[in-house]
Nucleic acid binder design. Structure first.
Length: 315
DNA sequence: AACTTCATCAACCGCGGAGCT
DNA sequence: TAGCTCCGCGGTTGATGAAGT
């Protein structure tokens, strides 16, 4: 870890930035940076910030610098606290397990660094983002995998933008999948049964197999398994966080399984499209949530709304 | 030893959403 | 409803040290 104090400021003059001048009427005193210091933080500033937050708590970032005696903007204070000074921030190298987790979460969530960081205790979005850009993306490229899509790079891209080839080269993915949790026929932590006896390539496997080709069902498997033991009303308030967590775990479980299937027989389960396609911001999480939540027979209206709101907020 | 290139990562920037009036 | 403020997010920058020539 580089000594921050030794780093010179990006804007040594410390003068106001002209970049925010174009923000028009929305420019706030916080953003004007008139007379505010920029660049690396000194230990003294760190102490001031830490002491203030330990005393007063987080939040009110705009007023914080003034009250704490710092010549920084609120944004800078928040960033420094979140990424460096927070006691829960874990320093040191990313472990192989964490790297594995980042890869799998990125496959599911894309560049949602804050969401990914939320699933990795002690790591910040900035740290994960940096690690991805400097390590993992290059690693995937060297393995022949597109770091954006997590699909094999096509050496001969078609000008017609044809759909993905049905046969996926298992070698690059296998290197990733080899690091993933083993997923045989088993029950996940949240109780969602993971199938390995998949049906035919259209996802028709008879009873109980609709999880693979029905987004609603996929979602609701996670939802219902999480709600299964939540009969008490007083559990409703906090079930949504668990719900999202369970949902994500479920997706990751299926994700692992999908990779194994690709390895073994090039089979691409229909829900692959759901995971890697529908779970993209451009296609809207809201629709998924609405569809899943709207069709839910498991929860009361309050739960549905709470869940939909939570998912919308998080995604 | 001097110079150049590469890798790393803290910090900055602009944007957009949420909440309030 | 519109406008404003605050906050958080993701993309990007640029200083620094390491590695290479």
């Amino acid at each position: 870890m580089r000594n921050l104090s030794s780093m010179s400021a990006r804007n040594p003059s410390g003068s106001s930035s002209s970049s925010s001048a174009g923000t028009g009427p929305k420019t706030t005193p916080c953003c004007s940076k008139i007379g505010l210091k920029r660049g690396p933080w000194t230990p003294e500033e760190d102490d001031l910030l830490s002491n203030y937050i330990n005393r007063e708590g987080e939040g009110r970032w705009r007023m914080l610098p003034k009250r704490a005696g710092l010549l920084r903007c609120g944004k800078s204070c928040r960033l420094r606290w979140m990424n460096y000074l927070r006691p829960s921030v874990k320093r040191g190298q990313i472990t192989p397990d964490e790297e594995d987790l980042i890869l799998r979460l990125h496959r599911l969530l894309g560049n949602r660094w804050s969401l990914i960081a939320g699933r990795i205790p002690g790591r910040t979005d900035n740290e994960i983002k940096n690690y991805w850009n400097t390590h993992l993306s290059k690693k995937l490229i060297s393995q022949g995998i597109d770091p954006r899509t997590h699909k094999p790079l096509n050496p001969n891209p078609s000008p017609l933008d044809s759909p993905p080839a049905p046969k996926i080269n298992p070698t690059p993915n296998a290197q990733v999948a080899g690091k993933c949790r083993e997923a045989d026929e088993r029950t996940t932590d949240n109780g969602w049964f993971v199938r390995t006896d998949l049906g035919d390539q259209n996802g028709r496997d008879g009873t109980g197999g609709e999880s693979w080709n029905n987004p609603d069902s996929l979602m609701m498997n996670a939802v219902q398994s999480s709600l299964g033991n939540s009969n008490e009303e007083d559990q409703i308030d906090y079930c949504s966080d668990d719900l999202f967590s369970s949902f994500l775990n479920s997706l990751m479980d299926e994700d692992t399984l999908t990779l194994q299937q690709q390895q073994s027989n090039n089979f691409v389960p229909p829900s692959e499209q759901f995971i890697t396609g529908l779970l993209k911001p451009t296609l809207g999480y809201g629709n998924i949530c609405e569809a899943a939540v709207g069709s839910s027979a498991a929860g009361a209206n309050g739960e549905r709304e709470h869940f939909a709101h939570q998912m919308d907020k998080l995604l």
